[in-house]
Design a protein around this nucleic acid. Structure first.
Lengths: 169, 169
DNA sequence: TATATCATGTAATGCGTTACATGATTTA
DNA sequence: TAAATCATGTAACGCATTACATGATATA
């Protein structure tokens, strides 16, 4: 996510932190103890390059994406969708999707097709599992499972709609 | 979650790991490097008590919930729902709900009422934010935001249904 | 008799969280 | 002139991940 934000335009740690508190990405930690060390690690790995600016006495480090950083970002974006990610990291998949403006329509649609397919299978298996155990479950457990299944179904409906919408643009 | 599983009935680390791979809780890590140290920490804190069993040469540690553990579990379950949890830890809230069979109907309904209220407000604020920025967003960003909003709406619908269902039992 | 499963662990590494810290500049 | 905001960091602590390791028992 940091790479994606920096690749949109060069940004400082503080600007990134502000984005993290003022947008729905608030989900992710904006603590200085996570952001600043992460930026330094990325710089050490050659993914970003920092330039020191000075306004009066005040200094700020603005980070820009390197060629290597851009290609790492692209690899992350086009990484094939797998079952495990759909089950455990759906949030990350949607985050990736949010940053796909730089990808081709074809690549973005391929991602959505994969996502749809894995979601479909996952919902089917969840329902199969649920059918086998629901009679033995306490009511709160049963309802919680239904909530999980319905969330996946909502995302599945969204994926289908997103595919149509993107294809028609 | 470990406490909740152990409070249902005494369990060994290995049994807990099996539950984590064979149920929708697969979400959470089943690695021995997380489970076994966590159980030891919980024992050190007096939340669980281990009994060593022997079947032939083979040993197993079975952990049982102590009084202190049961009360910590209950505190976790009845903890008031806040806005931040709805935004960042919705999964944990649903996990808590899944283990509420030991709570009174009143306590469980109070949880759902809180959840519903916070979800409602959150959806309203997300939509307000979205209305202000959607024209400036690239299509994938826009769609990703819609996915987020729709997920929360699906959970909100579920919470309302769950409330009715629980109240009618 | 080889392989799978039962069962429990440890060690290295990395990183997030929390809390603390500093100094510049803007706003009330 | 006090408080808020800009801006960037460090240190202690805890814990998850990954990989490695061990030995018993069941199954093919």
């Amino acid at each position: 996510m940091l790479l994606a934000l920096i690749s949109q335009e060069p940004r400082s740690g503080y600007e990134i932190r502000k984005i993290l508190v003022t947008t729905p990405m608030a989900h992710y930690s904006d603590s200085p103890g996570s952001i600043y060390p992460a930026l330094k690690r990325m710089e050490k790995r050659g993914l970003v390059r920092s330039e020191e600016e000075s306004v009066g006495q005040r200094k700020r480090q603005r980070y820009a994406c390197t060629r290597k950083g851009n290609s790492a970002l692209k690899q992350w974006l086009i990484k094939p969708v797998n079952r495990a990610d759909v089950m455990y990291n759906l949030d990350e998949l949607l985050l990736r999707f949010a940053f796909m403006q730089a990808l081709s329509r074809r690549e973005t649609l391929a991602f959505l097709a994969d996502l749809e397919q894995h979601l479909e299978r996952h919902v089917i298996e969840l329902k199969k599992f649920f059918a086998g155990v629901k009679k033995a479950m306490p009511i709160t457990g049963r309802l919680a499972m239904e909530s999980g299944i319905e969330s996946y179904e909502a995302t599945l409906r969204w994926a289908r709609r997103a595919k149509k919408e993107l294809a028609s643009v």
